[in-house]
Amino acid sequence: MLSELDISAIIITIKLALISTSILIVIGTPLAWWLSQTRVKFKVVFEAIIALPLILPPTVLGFYLLMTLGKNGPIGRLLESFGGSSIAFTFSGLVVGSVIYSLPFVVQPLQNSFASIGKQPMEVAATLGASKLDRFFTVAIPLARSGFITAAVLGFAHTVGEFGVVLMIGGNIPGETGVLSIAIYDHVEAMEYGQAHLLAGGLLITSFLMLIFVYLFNRHFSIMRGSEK
């Protein structure tokens, strides 16, 4: 059955996914809104940057994080000059990595659903005297509800499925950075295929159920598509 380490890996993974998803919703919402409204010339550049983690191997991201956080890297040096310590091998480090890694999975569904609202509801609200902020919170956000559900579930699921980034910057510390995907990898490496099956099968079923949930709530599942009416 599940060992103590396996259980700690599951807890760490859920904690990481919850915190990362919350941070992503907070920074992803204004970002997605801006992208859906702006007519700035270089919009595609920002969209491309946000989409990068979709196509980059996670090891690329992990490698650069490891380098920038290290003693010779810019962030490592900065932290050291302030007397702080590096965030490599810490839970906070994993949160930073996950936020970058799962960014497109949160921003893209939000952007799509903001774009699909169209101008009309916002203009009607404006003629009724609603302020800009008021319109955003009482019109845009409720109308983009399915986008938020998609974004949250995908951000969560994608963080749970993270491997390459954690492998590079985690250090597999039990109860701190030892996550589920690494635990599965270790079981396979250690030839404990039974325990690997248990965790991998559990993850497979959970991921499947999460996606079923998304599809049920959102029949226009549209992560990869552009703006959609």
Binding site: G70, K71, N72, G171
Partner: peptide, 15 residues
């Protein structure tokens, strides 16, 4: 590290 190569990276990068 998951293997000795990765362990070396941890030390080489100074982390």
């Amino acid at each position: 590290g998951e293997n000795i190569a990765q362990t070396f990276q941890f030390a080489k990068s100074g982390n």
